[in-house]
Design a protein around this nucleic acid. Structure first.
Length: 255
DNA sequence: ATGGCTCTCGCGGAGAGA
């Protein structure tokens, strides 16, 4: 079973690119972030023809998350309690015995910006909801907008203290994991440096100037069943005349 | 990098992203 997460940076702009990826990689379950589209404009038929049922929590212009499932599922939740003002950023679907959540965590803008406090508060809500879950098999994947460890930034230790790299943000990631979720990337790769996002500007991708901010967290049994964790860098590159997202897709293969 | 791309809205250029 292949389970993926991908910040696509606009579904309208990325539809054909996403189609190429789905056909090539054939994931069973996918969490998308940054749809930038309203629910009414979501192309359900397009994904049905590719073999997926879609669950959508969208919004005009900004944010927006969706789940595609080959095996269908049951919608459990849209959004995080008390955090609606921050936009459409979380959706949960039950697929057989798996509770699957994808999230687009707030950016925070800058450590002096009010959104930074909002980001920490949003995380506190996420942590408190995760703590309450009694599901044995859970996956929480998405764009976390936090660089969990110095090695996860191309700037390394030098970036500590900047937005995405503060102790407060890193503490939130640690607390999130302490609710019974394991970062499968960190278990698989230990101290290797790999990125999931590269700035569009200045040839960052080719200069290896990136960040690891997208990942897949899972409960113990799921983590144990994971054969592979892949950052699909090839899909951060142009496909013919199709523009890529600034994030690469990320997926795991389960036994 | 005080922003060198790309997205959306909507028709010009501004705001957001990370």
């Amino acid at each position: 079973m292949r389970i993926a997460t991908w910040n696509i940076n606009g579904l309208r702009a990325r539809k054909e690119f996403v189609e190429v990826w789905l056909k090539e990689r054939q994931p069973d379950l996918v969490g998308f972030q940054e749809l930038k589209i309203q629910d009414v404009d979501f192309p359900h038929e397009f994904f049905e023809e590719l073999g997926y049922e879609a669950f959508v929590h969208g919004q005009k212009s900004w944010n927006g998350v969706a789940i595609l499932s080959k095996a269908g599922g049951k919608l459990i939740q849209k959004g995080l309690k008390g955090q609606d003002d921050f936009g459409a950023r979380l959706i949960t679907v039950q697929v057989n015995d798996l509770e699957f959540t994808t999230c687009y965590c707030p950016n925070g803008k800058d450590i002096d910006h009010p959104d930074y406090i909002g980001k920490l508060d949003w995380y506190d809500s996420l942590i408190s909801e995760s703590k309450k879950s009694e599901q044995k098999n859970r996956i929480l994947c998405g764009d976390f907008n936090i660089v969990a460890r110095p090695i996860d930034s191309w700037k390394g230790e030098k970036a500590t203290g900047e937005i995405f790299h503060t102790q407060e943000e890193r503490l939130r990631m640690k607390e999130l994991k302490s609710t019974g979720l394991e970062d499968i990337y960190e278990s698989k790769y230990k101290d290797e440096q790999m990125f999931t996002w590269w700035d569009y500007r200045g040839g960052s991708f080719h200069r290896k100037h990136g960040l690891r901010i997208d990942t897949i967290l899972a409960t113990k049994d799921i983590a144990k069943r994971t054969k592979d964790f892949v950052i699909d860098r090839d899909f951060r590159k142009k496909k013919g005349d199709l523009t890529p997202s600034d994030h690469a897709p990320v997926y795991i293969d389960l036994e």
